Simulated scan of single mutants.
Amino acid sequence: MTNTIYDLDAWREQALEALDAQPGIEFQPRPGGEIFTVPHPLMLDDAKSAKLESASGALAIATVLLGSPAAYARFVAAGGRAGDVMMAYRVMQQSVTLDPTLTAFTPWSADAHTNSNLTSSTVIPASVDLSISGGELLSPVQES
Rank of each mutant, 00 (worst) to 15 (best):
P100L: 15
T37A: 14
A73W: 02
F75W: 04
F75T: 03
L66T: 10
V38C: 14
Y6L: 12
L130F: 03
N3T: 14
G80D: 12
T106L: 13
K51G: 10
W108D: 15
S54F: 11
R90P: 07
G135T: 01
M1G: 03
V85A: 09
G134K: 07
A70E: 15
D84S: 05
S68E: 01
F105E: 04
L19H: 10
A55N: 06
L42M: 13
G57R: 06
V123D: 04
R81N: 01
P125M: 04
G135E: 04
S144V: 10
N117M: 12
L137W: 04
T63P: 05
S121D: 10
P140G: 00
R90G: 03
L130D: 14
L118P: 02
S68N: 10
L137D: 04
A78N: 11
T97I: 02
A73R: 12
L137Y: 01
S116D: 09
V128I: 14
N3L: 12
P140C: 00
A88F: 09
L102A: 13
V38Q: 11
T119I: 13
Q14V: 08
G24V: 13
E17H: 09
G57W: 03
L16F: 03
A55R: 11
A58M: 14
F105P: 05
D7M: 02
G33N: 05
P39E: 01
T97Y: 05
T2D: 11
E53T: 01
D46C: 07
T101I: 04
V85P: 06
G134P: 03
A21S: 00
V76H: 05
M92I: 04
D9L: 12
A77N: 13
L16W: 00
P107F: 03
P100E: 11
M87F: 07
A82H: 12
A77G: 12
A50W: 05
S49A: 12
S120I: 07
G79I: 01
D99L: 14
F75K: 04
Y89F: 15
T106N: 03
Y6N: 09
A62G: 13
G134E: 07
I25S: 05
S116K: 06
A104P: 06
D20H: 15
A110S: 15
P23I: 06
A47W: 01
I5R: 02
M87G: 06
A15T: 06
N3H: 06
P23Q: 01
I124D: 14
G134M: 05
A126G: 08
V128P: 08
V128F: 10
A78C: 02
F105W: 13
F27I: 00
P29R: 08
Y89I: 09
S139P: 00
L98V: 00
L52I: 10
Q28Y: 09
G135P: 07
D129A: 02
L19T: 04
F105S: 07
T101A: 11
S68H: 06
Q93N: 12
